[in-house]
Design a protein around this nucleic acid. Structure first.
Lengths: 194, 194
DNA sequence: GTCTATAAGATGATAGAC
DNA sequence: GTCTATCATCTTATAGAC
């Protein structure tokens, strides 16, 4: 989930995916060139095609990397005792990334915003990232005894993603902090009135 | 604000801006080529440069077109009697665009998500679109007697933009309908407890 | 003001030596 | 498996005829 600078001591394939993820997060998938990715991963340009048949294949690998990042993140939250605590941990994760989001946007949200418009498999796979988060949140709300768990889950993710968009557009990490505080209070109010 | 198909009977400059706005909304600014814009506007490619010195100049014109669209939209809402009614009219506008958003995303949100990352003037100008909406909403919340008007305005725009992102990514206009209903109830609850 | 032709550069992808 | 060299294409932008 966190964008670590590409670790040079991984295998070439891993380095390419890490560099691509970082560059795509920074500038978008369309404007990121294979030459940039190859240079950042310290791999010769021609060699990229040994690991990935096309540019879209590389982007696909980035999406899968994000998917496993999300899975790992949600697994961490599962350790919290109450559903409300899990949901607040999710919101707080975006608050922790506020500086990164203000500079580069949300790694998941930007990807979905850019690739969802494409009608191909890449667009569908990207949407799965957001869907997994929504579904996980819905499970938590259901565990809180809420009948409207699906709508609440959408509201939570919409609030987080919308806050990230504003934080990035206005380049102000304070927005994320402020909004996550509001979100946490909202979750608490749902927990007590259930 | 609404993406009308480029009207062929406007002046060439207007046709170019309308076509560019439509194509950029559909596929993003980076992947939209001047050849596509020229073809859609029925203007020879080389002639584009008589009206716009560079591609960025054309994008700039699209941003200004969106800005005046927003201004016109907000002027419409001003006719409502209460601040709460104005805010709900704003939210309902996105609900009315739900089908378009599900297919192509929010015209403002997509543009901001893509261009905000750029550090140049274009990025700053795009952010102004969202800022004008936030500031207008803050004025309404302040008129409702809310001290936390700025935070509330951010929450409203975050909810609308986040809902649009989810609606587009998951290609489900029902999400927008559902979330706007929630937003309207939220505004009503603020109006009565102020 | 309008349009054709094309220059100049970048980019995805491949061929083929090692 | 790895890398160099290069092709074919696309894209922004310009030159210059009308």
């Amino acid at each position: 989930m966190t964008d670590s600078p590409p670790q040079i001591r991984l295998g070439k394939r891993e380095r390419l995916v890490a560099s691509a993820a970082d560059l795509i997060h920074r500038q978008g998938a369309a404007v990121t060139t294979l030459a940039q990715v190859a240079a950042a991963a310290d791999v010769p340009l021609g060699n990229v095609y040994y690991y990935f048949k096309t540019k879209d294949d590389l982007i696909q690998a980035v999406i899968e990397d994000r998917a496993s990042g999300i899975a790992g993140l949600l697994a961490t939250f599962e350790q919290r005792r109450t559903p409300a605590a899990r949901l607040k941990a999710l919101a707080r994760h975006w608050e922790n990334m506020r500086e990164l989001i203000a500079e580069q946007g949300c790694p998941i949200g930007s990807l979905c915003a850019e690739l969802s418009q494409r009608g191909d498999d890449l667009g569908r796979d990207t949407a799965t990232l957001l869907r997994s988060l929504v579904e996980w949140a819905a499970i938590q709300f259901r565990a809180m005894g809420r009948r409207d768990a699906d709508t609440l889950a959408m509201s939570l993710l919409a609030a987080v993603q919308g806050s990230a968009l504003l934080t990035n557009s206005l380049h102000d990490p304070g927005i994320m902090t402020d909004q996550v505080r509001t979100i946490e209070r909202w979750i608490d109010s749902l927990a007590t009135t259930a």
